[in-house]
């Protein structure tokens, strides 16, 4: 198989199948969760549920002071990684073209050097988090193979994307194909692992906040 055949396969059938698995998987999991059914709360509300929900969505997006002291590596590297990833994913000109092609929406890109820096930050942060997970006995004990799988499928698109952009190690065509295939792998793994937090995080935060908010408890 030539590099071009590999790239055509990655841009074609591989992404098609990954998209099908991703979309079906995410919807099934979401609907499964929402259709579980909850008992109606017949008590009188002490405060606004929605207010509590939004408050928690916001509050939990900011690290609690105690946590920063207790787990500085997780907090700092965690934020650095997520911000770096979002910049690289959403503001790299070729990525925006992809979103435009799929969703019909586009927005201005950031300069390449900004995206480049964000990618390096995300890669370094992920490496730090992996080392931290391996070195810290408690974290290592709590980690299962899925945690490492999730780490790997998130790391690979960042790494291959960086190497492709800088024409490093492999010819661009081949590296670009691996970049797209790593994204396809991420999409396939996504619905069945904790990567689902991308979609559920604010829903669950809102839910927790709303339940407490209704009872007059401010989280």
């Amino acid at each position: 198989m030539t590099d071009m055949e590999l790239l055509n396969w990655a841009r074609g059938p591989a992404l098609e199948w990954a998209t099908i698995i991703f979309v079906v998987g995410v919807l099934v999991r979401f609907l499964e969760m929402s259709l579980l059914g909850r008992k109606p709360d017949l008590s009188e509300a002490r405060a606004s549920a929605a207010g509590g929900g939004w408050r928690t969505v916001w509050r939990r997006s900011i690290p609690a002071p105690g946590l920063v002291k207790q787990a500085p590596v997780v907090i700092y590297a965690g934020y650095a990684f997520h911000i770096g990833l979002l910049i690289a994913l959403l503001f790299f000109a070729p990525h925006i073209l992809l979103f435009k092609d799929v969703f019909g929406l586009s927005w201005p890109a950031l300069p390449f050097f900004v995206v480049d820096a964000a990618t390096v930050i995300a890669i370094v942060a992920l490496l730090v988090l992996l080392v931290h997970r391996l070195v810290n006995p408690v974290r290592r004990f709590l980690s299962s193979w899925v945690d490492y799988l999730v780490w790997a499928v998130t790391f690979l698109p960042l790494l291959t994307g960086y190497l492709a952009y800088h024409r490093m190690i492999l010819p661009y065509t081949e590296m670009l194909a691996y970049h797209m295939l790593s994204v396809a792998l991420l999409l396939v793994v996504f619905p069945f692992t904790k990567l689902m937090h991308t979609f559920t995080i604010f829903v669950s935060r809102w839910y927790n906040g709303a339940v407490s908010g209704r009872k007059g408890v401010q989280l």
Binding site: L7, N8, R11, G12, L15, E16, T19, I20, F22, V23, V24, G25, V26, L27, V28, R29, F30, L31, E32, S34, L35, L36, P94, H95, L97, L98, D101, V102, F103, G104, L176
Partner: peptide, 30 residues
């Protein structure tokens, strides 16, 4: 189509997959 774009129309495919996913999700939920 730029090299960073998929060859096929993933938007349409995604919509079809979403319809299938919705049916499957409701079935699993029920």
């Amino acid at each position: 189509k730029a090299v960073s774009m998929p060859i096929s129309d993933l938007g349409k495919l995604g919509l079809a997959a979403a319809a299938a996913g919705a049916v499957a999700g409701v079935a699993v939920g029920l």
